[in-house]
Amino acid sequence: MKMHFNRKHLVIPYGLFLVLFVIIPLGFIVYYAFTNGSTGSFSLANFIKFFASPTSLSTLLLSIGVALLTTAVCLLIAYPIAYILARSKFKKKSVLLMLFVLPMWINFVLRINALREFLDLIGLLDQAHLFNTILGMVYDFLPFMILPLYTTLIKLDKSMLEASADLGSHPVSTFAKVTLPLSMPGIVSGITMVFMPTMTNYVISDTLGLGHVTIIGKFIEECFGARSDWHLGSAIALVLLMIIFVSMLVSGGFKEEDNGSRGAGLW
């Protein structure tokens, strides 16, 4: 018998990976979330526990707040940087871009601890826990906002801008009417790449907020660790998953056509 190598067979390793590391763990989470800790029977008790507790709800709201603020600040800083980089006639602009992305290559725990030492040095560490947390988040996630914005802006057809000027638009109104709408895919993917992780990145809030800022990620960690309530932890994880899913639907989600704007085209 002959072995026929088919291109379809290439899917096997990926399929195995998917089953082992995505579908089975997800199955566990769903199982734990909908079962009762003591009896193991189906129950919604975990969800009720989460939504009935003011502490857990306020943690969720705080997380959303921190994530929103981080995303907004990132966008405000990243857009001008990406715009100037994309527009500049400098020949080696990818080098400039790399300078902004370079911090990503350094271990993130190291970076955050360095920031912590710096804040300690200037005496801010114990003064403004929430500010420090957001500062750390922005510092950490800024490249994820710059990259997709830069790739959409660099692809923007210059003749669009000329057409707008030709039709009587002042440069400012060209920006509002043409550049901004056409860079929307980059903005959307930048937001998805910053908003989601900031909701759960408790290492930053722990290190820079000195335990005063508890975000939902920390809460989950506690459920699986100190409180050893895997059922509640799984339920919260599922709630988060739903929030991400809904926000992706709202923002237009991952469309085939903007794959290129997600940083893929850069390197």
Binding site: S159, M160, A163, M184
Partner: peptide
């Protein structure tokens, strides 16, 4: 004088229509 202040309009080579 910048283009937006000239009473002149252009039909571009590859049209440059606004896709949005």
């Amino acid at each position: 004088i910048p283009p937006h202040k000239r009473p002149i309009n252009t039909v571009f080579q590859r049209y440059a229509l606004f896709p949005h």
